[in-house]
Design a protein around this nucleic acid. Structure first.
Lengths: 324, 324
DNA sequence: TTGTATGCGTTATCAG
DNA sequence: CTGATAACGCATACAA
């Protein structure tokens, strides 16, 4: 790897001049510039980003912290963030926190030591203090950390209301809910939406609500338990798609026909929903857009751009397939 | 962020001494060390990785270049790499190349400028020259770039043979193959394996082989075409799971019963295979182990460890489910 | 055992 | 318009 010195030597100028043409700053004579550019291309010189980072106290790198990239929702999000970052000239460091706050803080430290320019994170445990301590832009995605902090979320409650109402409209008389992880804001909101729709029903009871942990395993267990206790259930709203898929699996095992005997609606709109049989009716989030918006917002904040919308609540849409 | 100077000042020593205790190198007096350690913890000092990188000409970061993180195979791989890297104190920069060699080279440049310590890549277009030009350890995963380069692959041909033989054993009389992307070594190998088993059959013909591109879309088209032309097909070996799932979808649409009328075997063993109905019989790769092994090999190479096994060909296993 | 000085590759300031 | 030079934060060779 040749350095700025090599370029300077070859062009017969000082490093300062090379730096000027590199960054297009300050005055540079016409022919001097040409000489330098020639040397640059001949040496195939590329500026050392590390040295640059050291001087500027920031790198062209951002951190992305998600609970688990294996969750298709976060996979798609990661892809969106990486695409957008790459187009804007940023690298992204991927971190899987498993929702573990120790790991999260560990990653936060590492990222800070590496002079990342900003962070996109999906976390339930992060506090506003931790964010402030980072001393760099942090945008929270999918989960709201604290009012006032840059955040991108979706209409969780509205989506849940739509899902539940849709089941009612489809003629379901006993609608159950598989909850998302306790304590996670979006899980609570989706639960709220469900409750709002069914609370007034004469059949309504807490025993129609079972706990999942946003993953397949817990959903399978919860659904088994639910359908054993309440064989009369004819509609299920699951707080995310993965859990809905788990529910479908259980229904299959029990010989329950979908959608004839049981209708199921998920939440997220992951690509997976289209490859299943039956395909899953779901409340689709604009996942890619979430990631894209987050990244764009982040560069805005990093660039000290003037005013900024720092709170987005994106719409969700009901996509009807044949699980209902 | 406090720097090494702050620590030195607080401890009343020179920065060199602080550096020594930090890296546990050279002589440091008992009580001096204690003073320094106290200052470090009081200031909550963390060494600046960027400055470190600049000096050492390497960072504690590696690059991971995959075609597309959205492909579940690579998602799982990425998770394995990130887990292992994190445990060993490395960060990973994620890059999606889309199999595009321009993008690949772009990422390669960026990674080099950022002093990454090494790279794990899955590519079909990369050449040995490009790798040499990087001037750092590069391990190739899932796809072999060139003999002699550090590589981790699986028994593609053997797996394909096992898959095809299994279909035969199950009583299939007309076994078709959905190929992976042309030019990709593992696709060719899987194709070889298939051919080896069926080439001697009296019914064998090239028209039982259709081209897919390792994704759902192409597989759906290819399968539709295949089954229209050859309704007598009673077994399909798809070169990866995603394509097998596409084939299942088509069979459903056409009202073909699986496994009664048609048996399907995939390749990869992605988690998705278990959530489908029917669950997919597949040739499972040890995906997580692939990523783990790659990362471990990479740190070996980066640390200039002595001898090293730089070529792994991991076993695959047939997992029988109810798609056959 | 400890401190001083130097360099890693850049950028920015300040003379010239 | 251009060139020295200091500084970014750290680690090492060399002195002391």
């Amino acid at each position: 790897m040749s350095s700025i010195k090599d370029v300077a030597k070859m062009a017969g100028v000082s490093v300062a001049t090379v730096s000027r043409v590199l960054n297009d700053k300050g005055y540079v004579g016409r022919d001097t510039r040409e000489k330098v550019e020639k040397a640059i291309s001949e040496l195939n010189y590329k500026p050392n980003e590390v040295a640059r980072s050291l001087f500027k106290k920031q790198s062209s790198t951002i951190g992305l912290i998600v609970p688990d990239i294996m969750n298709p929702f976060f996979t798609e999000l990661a892809r969106a963030v990486e695409d957008t970052a790459s187009n804007l000239g940023y690298n992204v460091i991927l971190c899987n926190s498993d929702g573990n706050s120790k790991k999260e803080q560990g990653y936060l430290d590492v990222l800070q030591q590496n002079y990342v320019n900003g962070i996109i994170i999906s976390s339930n445990t992060l506090t506003a203090e931790q964010v402030k301590a980072m001393n760099m832009p942090v945008v929270s995605i999918d989960r709201e950390i604290s009012r006032g902090l840059p955040t991108i979320v979706v209409e969780n409650k509205n989506g849940a209301v739509a899902a539940t109402q849709f089941l009612k409209k489809k003629g379901c008389k006993r609608i159950a809910h598989i909850r998302g992880t306790h304590g996670v804001v979006n899980a609570e909101e989706r639960f709220e939406g469900y409750k709002e729709v069914v609370a007034a029903e004469e059949w309504y009871s807490d025993s129609y609500i079972v706990d999942g942990d946003y993953d397949m395993q817990t959903s399978v267990e919860a659904t088994l338990d639910l359908l054993k206790r309440h064989p009369e259930v004819d509609g299920i709203f699951a707080a995310n798609d993965i859990m809905a898929i788990g529910a479908i699996k259980v229904a299959h095992q029990l010989g329950i026909k979908i959608p004839e005997q049981l209708s199921i609606v998920g939440f997220d709109g992951i690509a997976l929903t289209n490859v299943l049989t039956p395909e899953l009716t779901t409340i689709a989030q604009p996942i890619y857009e979430l990631g894209e918006t987050a990244m764009n917002m982040l560069v805005g904040l990093m660039g000290q751009q003037p005013v900024h919308e720092t709170y987005y609540k994106l719409e969700v849409t009901l996509i009807e397939k044949n699980s209902t």
